[in-house]
Design a protein around this nucleic acid. Structure first.
Lengths: 339, 339
DNA sequence: TTCGGGTTGTGAACCGGTTCGAACCTAACC
DNA sequence: GGTTAGGTTCGAACCGGTTCACAACCCGAA
């Protein structure tokens, strides 16, 4: 392994001169710098990350704590992860990924042993057990997902309230008077998935304000249960003409359910969902949707985190809670209700 | 930050004694060990990872080089990643994730700066540009995916030949005499995705051996193109009674295509695909399939890598190329051909 | 000629661990 | 009683970087 000492010897200068020549933190004569650079090239020198981390107490690594839960749609997580990963790299950071069941253990390990300069938490629950650990840690943290208590961390999330309102308003404007909303399983809510409630409550509120009926239900997360759920709902509310999906499995299962009943959207039923463009195109879903832009959230979280790491923002500066507005993409699965 | 010196001071011993007491690499009196352990607990001491890496030249980190390519099904990659991640953690390693476009750069960075003890490469192409870099690196590497040249690395992949044979044989045994095989886009093959060919050739060979007709075609990777592809194929080969899918997008799009034509499986057409159980259940696909067990491949790769890292296997020991046999899961979408 | 200031380079200390060789103490043995 | 062996512990060196304090040098101005 080639070290800074080898470079110094070949260039005929001291180790500190090599360090300064490479970091640019002090003026070095053109001559010396030239010799150092030549030596670096000749030897193929790359600084040892561990040694540098030890000396600077900076690792240039960000921890990413993913959280895969049952009854949640795993591929959606991938979008967040990619946003985080790509942005981190653009800003010069590498990514230490943990998919460990026990997020608190992973977080403690990364933080205590100083493997990371900061941490991004994905899929944050209302009362997330990782948060107390993060607040006690010396490294800054950024969240994707809204917890009950946001003190001491920067938070980024989709504006689920707005998403709920948007979908109801869209259908009401087309003339629908009775709607069904299928949410994620109740289980997800109980576990702390507050976004389910946030969307549902806002949708209810919007429906009441517009004077229309909204039947809100939880759906399963798997076949064949979710198919039966959908069938049951359509049977129970035969007069409903608008269907709102906040449940990826339901979106994936709907085409065959509609087929079986001989229905088609938007002729017999207007359908609108909440999922990302990526999800729609990957799974060939041509329903209109409000998009959740997961990679954008990951990107924002990392940007803010790096600002904190690099001291551009101090711990005294206020922490942000930022909501991204969803956008409605019309894919033609909604229209006026049947006569 | 609390260091080994702080622990030593509180316990009234030297730093080396603390180190030995914690690592167990030398005998330490019960008395001293007790005092050290108490001090560790009281101070909440955790060794600094960078310092330890520097001293031992072991990082206890594995690099994971994912590779997301256009026209490939991203969520499948997630399964591999999870297998790798979980197994690494079980074996005491953390994971440095790169999703960088230029895999060679990421690999060089991780390797040269000694951030990782070994590397797992996902989605390896026939002539993968990361391989020369990996062979020149001092760290061992394990691959998921079969490259043209396997020297110097351990390789794990699904047995795509076997998968192709299995599907053809299954349909032939049921009485089918004319089959269609839809593969991934040709683009993927040209880029080095050899698995497409491997399955296709083996399927062709098996069809010839059984004396049945096989129409092999490349399909798109997206809607609506893949839907048109499928429709076109069914129009072109109206006598085909068996459909083999080696293309996730096709599997996702097929239900609506069949619906439009008023067909149902297996009554009018027997359908069998190649994808993981995870994929099938997430996307509500109830087609029979040969399963690709991605998490198992990730797990095997990490196991072998760690054996190399820890010197249980030396670089002189032969490198392995191991194929996992696919398993046929019958979900009832295949049957005897219509009369 | 001398002095002061700026530029460039060096040596040493430091980051926080691990590990080697030697020293120390005690008990056992001759 | 002296020697030896074995079990513990310690000090120092080392891993490969960064950075501080200081020295040498050069230039121009007084």
């Amino acid at each position: 392994m080639v070290t800074i000492g080898d470079v110094a010897r070949l260039a005929g200068v001291s180790r500190s001169t090599v360090s300064y020549a490479l970091s640019g933190k002090r003026a070095i004569s053109d001559q010396a710098r030239g010799r150092v650079e030549a030596a670096v090239r000749e030897l193929g020198y790359t600084p040892n990350a561990g040694a540098r981390a030890l000396a600077t107490s900076q690792t240039m690594v960000i921890g990413l704590l993913a959280r895969f839960l049952e009854d949640e749609f795993a591929p959606a997580m991938l979008q967040y992860m990619l946003g985080v990963s790509n942005t981190a790299r653009e800003l010069g950071y590498d990514l230490l990924l943990s998919t460990e069941e026990d997020g608190t253990r992973a977080l403690r390990r990364m933080s205590d042993s100083r493997m990371v300069d900061g941490v991004v938490l994905l899929n944050v629950a209302d009362e997330d057990d990782r948060l107390p650990v993060l607040r006690a840690a010396p490294q800054p943290g950024a969240l994707v997902g809204l917890p009950g208590d946001c003190t001491g961390v920067d938070v980024f999330d989709l504006d689920f309230e707005e998403a709920g309102r948007l979908m109801v308003d869209h259908l009401v404007r087309l003339g629908h008077r009775e709607l069904i909303l299928v949410s994620q399983p109740e289980h997800v809510v109980e576990r702390g998935g507050a976004y389910v409630w946030r969307l549902q409550n806002a949708a209810r509120e919007a429906a009441r304000a517009r004077g229309v009926v909204l039947h809100a239900a939880f759906g399963s997360s798997r076949q064949p249960e979710i198919g039966r759920d959908l069938t049951g709902l359509l049977d129970t509310y035969p007069d409903a003409t608008g269907l709102i999906l906040n449940n990826e499995a339901a979106a994936a299962a709907l085409p065959s359910v509609l087929h079986e009943r001989g229905l088609s959207a938007p002729r017999d039923l207007s359908v609108i969902g909440r999922y990302s463009e990526e999800f729609a195109s990957t799974f060939s879903l041509h329903y209109s949707a409000v998009e959740s832009a997961p990679d954008r959230l990951g990107r924002m979280a990392v940007r803010q985190l790096v600002r904190r790491i690099e001291g551009e923002i101090s711990p005294d500066d206020p922490y942000v809670v930022r909501f991204v507005s969803p956008e409605l993409v019309d894919r033609g699965s909604t229209g006026t209700p049947p006569a």
